[in-house]
Simulated scan of single mutants.
Amino acid sequence: MKFKLILFLLLFSLLVSFSVSAQYLEVALVSDIGGFGDNSYNDQLRSAINEMDKKINLSVDYRESKLMTEYLENINYFAENKFDLIWGVGFTMEQAIEEAAQMYPERNFVIFDGVVEEENVMSLTFKKEEAGFLAGVIAALESQNSAVAFIGAKENKAMQKYQAGFNTGVKAVNSDIKIMNKYVGSFNDFSMAKKITTELIKESVDIIFYAAGSASHGIIDQAIEEDIKLISLDKADIKLAPNNILTSILKNTEHIVEDVIKAYYNDNYVNEIKEYGITDNAFILEEKQAEKFISSDKLVKIEEYKQQFLEGEIEIRSEL
C-alpha cells in the first residue's frame, strides 16, 4: 500500500511538472504601415521577440498592416485568439489599440512608442531629451567646423525636448560650439526641409541632428549633395545616406522587449505608462555605422559623457 502511494505521488509530481513545462506565453506583434522589412522598429521588435523565443517558452505570431484601416482588424484577431501580450507599434496605432483594449478588457496590450490610457495597456514611451543628449555629444565630438544644428518638424513640446537634450549634449562637450535650432513647420514639407538644410550649411554647420518625419528626406538629400554629416533616429535612414549618417540613436528594442516579456512571465507585469531613458539602457547607437565613422576613442568619450549624465553631473535644461 505504501509503495502504491509513493508511486502515485511520483506520477502526480511528473504530471504537474509536465503541465508547468508545457505552458507557454503567447506573444503577438502587429506592424504599422511601414510593414516588416522596413529596417526600422517593426523589424527590430520582431527580431527582439524572436530572440526572447529562444530564451523562454513562447508562442509567437505576427500580422503586417498595409493600411491604417487594417490595424484594428489585425489587433482584434489576436485578442479573439486569446494571446497574452499583443504589441502595436507607434502613435498611429494608438486609436486602434484603445478600441481593442475596450472591446477585450481581459487581454493585455503593449504599445511601443505611444500612449493609450486604458487599464489593460502598457504604454512604452521614451525620454526624447535623453536621445537628443546623446546626439549632441556625438555632434560636438565630430564637428570639424564647431557649428552644429538640430532640425525638428513642428515646434511642439516633443520636438523641444529633442532640442533641449541636443543643446545640453553639445555644450557638455564644448561650450564654444555654435548651435542652430530650426523647425520645418511640418512633418512632410520636403522642400522646406531642404531649404533649411541649405541655409544651415551656408552658416558652416557640418553636422545636423534631425527629427522631422517624412520631411527628413529633404535634409538627407541636401546632406548628400553638400557632403555633410547627419545623426538620425531611424536605422532605415542609413540605407538612404550610408556615407553621410554618422549613426542613428536607436531605442534598445531587444532590452525593452525582454524587460516586458520577462515581467509578464514572472508575474511582475503592470499595465502602466512607462517612460524609458538612459538609466534604463533605453538608447543605443547603430553599432556598425558608428564604428564606421566614429573612432574608438570618441566612442569611449560618448560613454563617459553618458556616465556623467547618470551620475547627475550633467543636467538637461529646457533653456540653453
Score class of each variant (00 low, 15 high):
Thr168His: 06
Thr168Lys: 10
Thr168Phe: 07
Thr168Tyr: 07
Thr168Arg: 08
Gly169Cys: 10
Gly169Pro: 12
Gly169Leu: 08
Gly169Val: 07
Val170Trp: 03
Val170Tyr: 07
Val170Arg: 09
Lys171Val: 15
Ala172Gln: 05
Ala172Phe: 05
Ala172Trp: 06
Ala172Gly: 09
Val173His: 05
Val173Asn: 06
Asn174Ser: 09
Asn174Phe: 10
Ser175Thr: 13
Ser175Ala: 13
Asp176Asn: 14
Asp176Ala: 05
Ile177Arg: 04
Ile177Pro: 00
Ile177Phe: 06
Ile179Trp: 08
Ile179Pro: 10
Met180His: 11
Lys182Ile: 09
Lys182Val: 13
Tyr183Asp: 11
Val184Lys: 12
Val184Met: 12
Gly185Arg: 11
Ser186Tyr: 06
Ser186Ile: 06
Phe187Glu: 05
Phe187Leu: 04
Asp189Cys: 08
Ser191His: 10
Ser191Tyr: 13
Met192Ser: 14
Lys194Asn: 13
Lys195Gly: 01
Ile196Lys: 09
Thr197Asp: 11
Glu199Ile: 00
Leu200Pro: 11
Ile201Leu: 06
Lys202Glu: 14
Lys202Gln: 14
Lys202His: 13
Lys202Phe: 08
Glu203Gln: 15
Val205Trp: 03
Val205Ala: 02
Val205Lys: 02
Asp206Arg: 04
Asp206Thr: 03
Asp206Ala: 03
Ile208Cys: 01
Phe209Trp: 06
Tyr210His: 15
Ala211Glu: 03
Ala211Ser: 12
Ala211Phe: 10
Ala212Trp: 13
Ala212Asn: 12
Gly213Asn: 10
Gly213Phe: 10
Ser214Ile: 15
Ser214Ala: 15
Ser214Gln: 14
Ser214Cys: 00
Ala215Met: 12
Ala215Glu: 12
Ser216Thr: 04
Ser216Trp: 05
His217Ala: 14
Gly218Ile: 03
Ile219Arg: 06
Asp221Glu: 15
Asp221Leu: 11
Asp221Gly: 02
Gln222Ser: 09
Ala223Val: 03
Ile224Asn: 11
Ile224Trp: 00
Glu225Asp: 13
Glu225Leu: 13
Glu226Trp: 04
Glu226Ala: 15
Asp227Ser: 15
Leu230His: 11
Ser232Asp: 08
Ser232Met: 09
Asp234Leu: 13
Asp234His: 11
Asp234Ile: 07
Asp234Val: 07
Ile238Met: 08
Ile238Leu: 15
Lys239Trp: 02
Lys239Ala: 15
Lys239Glu: 14
Leu240Ala: 14
Leu240Thr: 12
Leu240Asn: 14
Ala241Asp: 10
Ala241Thr: 09
Pro242Cys: 14
Asn244Pro: 05
Ile245Leu: 09
Ile245Gly: 03
Leu246Asp: 03
Thr247Gln: 01
Ile249Trp: 08
Leu250Ile: 06
Leu250His: 05
Lys251Ala: 00
Lys251Arg: 14
Asn252Cys: 07
Asn252Gln: 07
Thr253Phe: 00
Thr253Glu: 11
Glu254Ser: 12
Ile256Glu: 03
Ile256Lys: 10
Ile256Phe: 02
Val257Trp: 01
Val257Asp: 00
Val257Thr: 05
Val257Tyr: 00
Val257Lys: 01
Glu258Arg: 15
Asp259Phe: 09
Val260Ser: 01
Val260Thr: 03
Val260Glu: 00
Val260Asp: 01
Ile261Phe: 07
Ile261His: 05
Ile261Arg: 02
Ala263Leu: 02
Ala263Gln: 10
Ala263His: 02
Ala263Tyr: 03
